[in-house]
């Protein structure tokens, strides 16, 4: 049943103009970077900033819009013998998968036809992994918000605020904390704070890939342990996975008891 719903969802989403625009955005950007920047490693580095800003924002906004627009459709399906959990996964995967595919395809295609080196591919795959995780997390957040707030202005507004909070304000708070308590041993608290923000997590994963040389400039045993060993990668990926399950579970549970 989930696959049935998913099948028609995918058919719908892949025909929509915005998903085509989304693919083209990443495709053109990566291609242009290849043309001007040269090697795939540089391209991936440049794409990093885009990925960390564009993906959370577009995923949460598109996700919320999509779900608000699908309200009547979901009601309709629920009047057929469809179970709620089936509909939820159908709808969730029906948006998250196309977004991931659009992003991954848009980024990787130029790597393919530019015959990037193995090292560049490794960076590109890390980029795609991180971007995909962020996509799914922010689509899940959007779904939760859209299910929680029937008023779409409120839902979309909150989506924007959450996005802004995670992309900018949160890091401002971290910097503030670092400044205010600079005389205290803050290594662990700062690391933990970063792990609590999915965008920071994604950023750290990518830093491990692209800026390890700079990160190694951090003094302190905790940082050395974290960034200098596979520990950092493991913890970041694990935290990202935890981050993934939280909004998905919240959205799912909300969906089961929601009044349409």
């Amino acid at each position: 049943m989930i696959l049935k719903i998913l099948k028609y969802q995918l058919r719908d989403v892949f025909r929509s103009r915005w998903i085509i625009a989304y693919v083209l955005f990443f495709l053109v950007l990566t291609d242009v970077l290849f043309r001007f920047g040269g090697d795939g490693l540089r391209v991936a580095t440049s794409m990093m900033n885009i990925v960390l800003i564009v993906i959370p924002l577009s995923s949460i906004i598109l996700g919320a819009f999509y779900l608000y627009n699908a309200r009547e459709y979901m009601e309709l399906l629920l009047c057929h013998p469809v179970k709620r959990h089936q509909l939820f996964w159908g709808m969730f995967l029906g948006l998250a998968l196309p977004l991931v595919a659009a992003f991954a395809g848009g980024v990787m295609l130029p790597y393919l036809y530019n015959a990037a080196s193995a090292e560049a591919w490794q960076s590109a795959l890390m980029l795609v992994f991180t971007g995909s995780m962020l996509t799914v997390i922010f689509v899940a957040l959007a779904y939760y918000l859209a299910l929680r707030f029937d008023d779409r202005i409120k839902g979309l507004g909150l989506a924007l605020v959450i996005c802004l909070f995670f992309t900018i304000i949160y890091d401002g708070i971290i910097l503030f904390v670092i400044y205010m308590f600079s005389s205290y041993p803050l290594e662990k608290p700062v690391l933990v704070m970063s792990l609590l923000n999915p965008i920071d997590l994604g950023r750290i994963l990518l830093l491990l890939q692209f800026d390890i040389s700079a990160l190694m400039g951090l003094t302190g045993a905790v940082f050395r342990e974290f960034f200098g060993t596979p520990l950092g990668m493991t913890v970041s990926v694990a935290s990202l996975l935890i981050w993934l399950t939280v909004p998905v579970t919240a959205g799912f549970r909300r969906f089961l008891v929601k009044d349409f």
Partner: peptide, 13 residues
């Protein structure tokens, strides 16, 4: 504040 390096490439920075 060397620890601020954690925020490398963040939007805020």
């Amino acid at each position: 504040n060397p620890m601020a390096l954690m925020l490398l490439r963040s939007m805020f920075v």
